[in-house]
Amino acid sequence: MKGLLVSGFAAIGAGSGAMLTLHAGSDLDPMHSVISEYVWQSAGWLLPASLTLFAVGSALIAEALRRAGMSRWIVALLVAWGASMFMIGAFPTDRPGVPLSLSGGIHRYAAFAAFLAMPVAGLLLARARIRYARAVRVLSGVAVGALLLVVIPYVVRMFGIPLSNDDIPAGLTQRVVVVTELGVLALAGLSMLRPAARRGVSPIMA
């Protein structure tokens, strides 16, 4: 199981490195530009590569949690998060100003599914009293709050009110969601590195 966790951390680290490299080589404003728009940059291939690595890392950590006897719901949510991350990368968003396409629609709903799955998994992990449960609960709460801020502009636009990402810190709120959810995933894996954490899992959640 330790091998699964170490491999999972390596995948998450490599994915984070690819994401940071993509941002460093772009002239987009991270405060207002959402991460999906970076796919149209010269090094845009790093976006699906990064998301695929996140997906691999999530799958490896989910398998480690399964072997440790963690709740099947938590394992399923981590797998769903990883699958959604892969789909986000496989189906790129549309260029700004272009009507929503099938690829753009899949991208959008896969992102929403991922953003929702990880905080729920985190709250279940905290309820199971894993090591770092308090930090996981806090990160999950922040992720939920930031997700609401991500969703509100879409709801506003549904009512015909013009609102562009230049009017709001759309990029910042989305990045808060991504960073906090990666934090939840990393802490979930770290909690399994020590035997005491595995013994402390609530049998109710197993």
Rank of each mutant, 00 (worst) to 15 (best):
M1I: 13
G3W: 13
G3C: 10
L5S: 10
A10C: 11
A10I: 06
G13P: 01
M19C: 10
L20C: 11
L20Q: 13
S26E: 06
S26V: 06
D29V: 06
M31E: 12
M31H: 00
H32E: 09
H32C: 02
V34E: 04
V34A: 04
S36V: 02
Y38M: 03
V39T: 01
V39K: 04
W40I: 01
Q41T: 15
L46D: 12
L46P: 13
L46N: 10
L47P: 13
P48K: 03
S50M: 11
L51D: 03
L51Q: 10
A55P: 11
A55N: 02
A55H: 08
G57C: 10
L60M: 15
I61K: 04
I61H: 08
I61Q: 05
A64Y: 03
L65H: 04
A68T: 00
A68K: 13
M70K: 06
S71R: 14
S71Q: 12
S71P: 02
R72L: 07
A76D: 04
L77M: 02
L78R: 06
L78N: 03
V79F: 10
V79I: 15
A80T: 05
W81I: 05
G82V: 01
A83S: 11
S84G: 11
M85K: 11
F86N: 09
F91E: 15
P92D: 12
D94T: 12
R95P: 00
P96Q: 05
G97R: 13
V98G: 12
V98F: 13
L100W: 08
S101N: 04
S101P: 06
L102R: 14
L102W: 15
G105K: 11
I106N: 09
H107D: 06
R108H: 14
A111H: 10
F112D: 15
F115C: 12
L116I: 10
A117W: 01
A121D: 08
G122L: 00
L124R: 06
L125S: 01
R127Q: 03
A128L: 05
R129Y: 08
R129N: 12
I130H: 00
R131P: 06
Y132H: 13
L139V: 03
G141M: 07
A143F: 08
V144A: 02
V144I: 14
A146L: 02
L147M: 09
L148T: 07
V150S: 01
V150G: 05
V151S: 03
I152P: 01
V155N: 00
V156C: 05
R157E: 07
M158S: 12
M158C: 06
G160I: 07
D166Y: 10
D166R: 13
I168Q: 09
I168E: 00
A170I: 00
G171Q: 07
T173G: 01
T173A: 07
R175E: 12
V178D: 04
V179N: 00
E181N: 05
G183H: 01
L185F: 05
L185K: 05
A186P: 04
L187R: 02
L190E: 09
L190Y: 10
M192Q: 15
R194N: 15
A196M: 00
A197T: 11
A197R: 09
A197C: 08
R199W: 11
V201W: 03
V201H: 01
S202V: 05
A206E: 04
